[in-house]
Nucleic acid binder design. Structure first.
Length: 113
DNA sequence: GCGTTGACGAGGA
DNA sequence: GTCCTCGCCAACG
């Protein structure tokens, strides 16, 4: 893991997001100890398209629950469809009950702490 | 090695 | 409540 670059660490956390759950970039950054580097998380996801295994980037949105990165997908609507396919309602590119589907790694992965 | 980029966040008006 | 500005800091060219 020491060899893992910052964006590789982001992939690991995002890959741990359960199906039907979503999280924000800031939370992931904070979990990595770089809460101020929230932008780096989004930037790292830029490689998620070519990452192996594929990263469920559609489960990661900004702190507003808005699908800011949908435009980076194959099609702008692909991200919304994937979320709805997992039971997450998306209206106007925004996640409904975002707080309800919110997944906090610092809490869900708190088992080992 | 330097400047720009950027899927964000928080604070202020 | 919305809109604007600043800051963060790694990766890319």
């Amino acid at each position: 893991m020491d060899n893992a670059s910052f964006y590789e660490q982001v992939f690991q956390v995002v890959a741990l997001i359960p199906n039907g759950r979503v999280t924000s970039y800031g939370v992931i950054a904070a979990y990595l100890g770089a809460k101020s580097s929230s932008r780096m998380v989004g930037y790292a996801m830029n490689d998620a398209v070519k990452a192996m295994p594929p990263i469920p980037a559609h489960r990661v949105v900004n702190r507003n629950g808005l699908l800011t990165g949908k435009f980076h997908f194959s099609t702008p609507t692909k991200m919304q469809e994937l979320l709805e396919a997992e039971g997450v309602k998306v209206i106007d590119d925004k996640i409904v009950n975002f707080k309800k589907f919110f997944w906090d790694p610092s809490v869900e992965l708190d088992l080992e702490r």
